[in-house]
């Protein structure tokens, strides 16, 4: 069990290592999938590219925002 957890953690750290990035990109992809596959949301398909770019930028801002908000970083200057 311990070994499996270590492997999962190593894979996670290799590819992401940051929960905010993982959640942000997964959420963006989820929204795009909904727009792509659900007919009711078809009118939004034209804006998919913008939604994707905004999602990526929002994720970057969110993950950096979290780093800036860390107490140890508040004292750096």
């Amino acid at each position: 069990m311990n070994v499996i957890l270590k492997v999962i953690l190593a894979v996670y750290n290799f590819f992401v290592g940051d929960l905010v990035i993982l959640i942000g990109i997964t959420l963006t992809m989820g929204i795009l999938a909904l727009i792509h596959f659900v007919d009711v949301l078809a009118p939004l398909r034209g804006a998919s590219g913008i939604i994707l770019i905004v999602g990526v930028l929002a994720t970057l801002v969110a993950t950096l925002g979290r780093e800036v908000a860390r107490p140890e970083n508040k004292q750096k200057g």
Binding site: I21, I25, L60
Partner: peptide
């Protein structure tokens, strides 16, 4: 998807 995860990590 993976490139986005990887790229954002490097960029951050």
């Amino acid at each position: 998807f993976l490139l986005l995860l990887f790229g954002l990590k490097w960029l951050k």
